[in-house]
Design a protein around this nucleic acid. Structure first.
Lengths: 205, 205
DNA sequence: TAGATTGTTAATCGATTAACAATC
DNA sequence: TAGATTGTTAATCGATTAACAATC
């Protein structure tokens, strides 16, 4: 199925899931493509079209049962399980990621953290011990970890990525401000706050 | 000019700028749409088309002079100046943002930080003093700040955004995991690492 | 039943790519 | 000159939207 579904559709599903979860927390049980669209700034037609790639989740006349749709979307996105994630880099950003409480109920759990600084190796951050980067490949391979977050300086990011891919990592969230070169079977997502701010300044007067 | 240029084109310019800056650091003086495209995983035709919206920056047969193109892109994106940015929320994430050194040479400077916790107000983070959130509107208005980063819990994000917009903020980088409701003259960009990871798990076997 | 909303088809809209004349 | 690469046009491709029959 993945083969014929546009990536741009997959990209919106997590937003639907997030908004639906929020509606559920607010105590609502049923919603419609119109209501969801209004909340997300997306047309109702697009939401129905997107969802229709995966099946008929709604009922004519009434809409979508939120708990059911959440469950289905979790299955589609494969976050009805908990993925172990490795964090590379224990600077300010790595530390913030380790402290972040928002991963666990959305399908992810940070499993380990690595850094190359002798001052940091062996130290604790919350419940985590910082491992030396030399042990990165061994540990990731042993645990079968498929997802990593790169929070190292830009100059080291490509090298780290290569090593991760070598031992089976297939999804990388890259916080380093540079484009990574990876084989086609590896997915990369980027977070660079400066890029996102530069996308807005153009519109400022 | 902004009116007729697709937003998706604007979205790629910061990536071009970032890659070009990197090439310059590596000591290169000239590049081509092919080389840039290879680095970014974008077709050369698309790069030429995107740039052509703003003028002819290259020379047939030779390509683009990097320093010149960097300069032009900075002007287009309006990051040939330094924008003051307000940070709302001084938790782990806010702290990481305040410590981050990568803003200043790309057009931004954090000007002030706000939090509502009595334990944090008045404390220092690096060179910054944490201001009470009650002073947020006054300070932002006085300084004429147009850009803010929201790093508060999801439940508070909409309220904070409303207050920011009230006093003139026109660009928001939202780290809270929720979609904001804003008037059309305000730009919002989102950073939610979980959303980005959920965009990759779909493709994992 | 009357009203509401889905899932889907066809039409529209917009973005990407291919190709090439111009020219450095 | 020969080779390379731009800027631009036209063709292709893909995504969004409008509309509506089906039906809860």
């Amino acid at each position: 199925m993945p083969g014929n579904i546009p990536d741009i559709v997959i990209g919106r599903l997590p937003l639907y899931l997030r908004a639906l979860t929020r509606l559920a927390v607010e105590g609502q049980e049923v919603t419609s493509s119109h209501e969801l669209g209004r909340r997300l700034g997306i047309s109702s037609a697009q939401i129905r079209k997107d969802l229709s790639h995966f099946g008929g989740f709604g009922k004519q006349g009434t809409g979508y049962h939120i708990a059911y749709l959440v469950d289905q979307l979790r299955q589609v996105l494969k976050v009805d399980q908990e993925w172990e994630v490795a964090v590379i880099g224990a600077g300010d950003l790595g530390t913030a990621l380790l402290h972040y409480k928002g991963f666990s109920d959305r399908g992810f759990r940070i499993a380990c953290v690595f850094d190359n600084s002798p001052q940091k190796i062996g130290k604790n951050i919350g419940e985590y011990v910082i491992h030396p980067i030399d042990e990165m490949q061994k540990i990731i391979q042993e645990r079968g970890i498929k997802i990593a977050m790169i929070a190292v300086p830009a100059e080291k990011a490509q090298e780290v990525a290569n090593k991760l891919i070598e031992v089976g990592v297939r999804a990388i969230l890259n916080y380093a401000p540079m484009t990574l070169n990876v084989p086609s079977e590896v997915k990369v997502q980027y977070i660079d706050p400066v890029v996102q701010m530069q996308r807005m300044t153009f519109y400022l007067t």
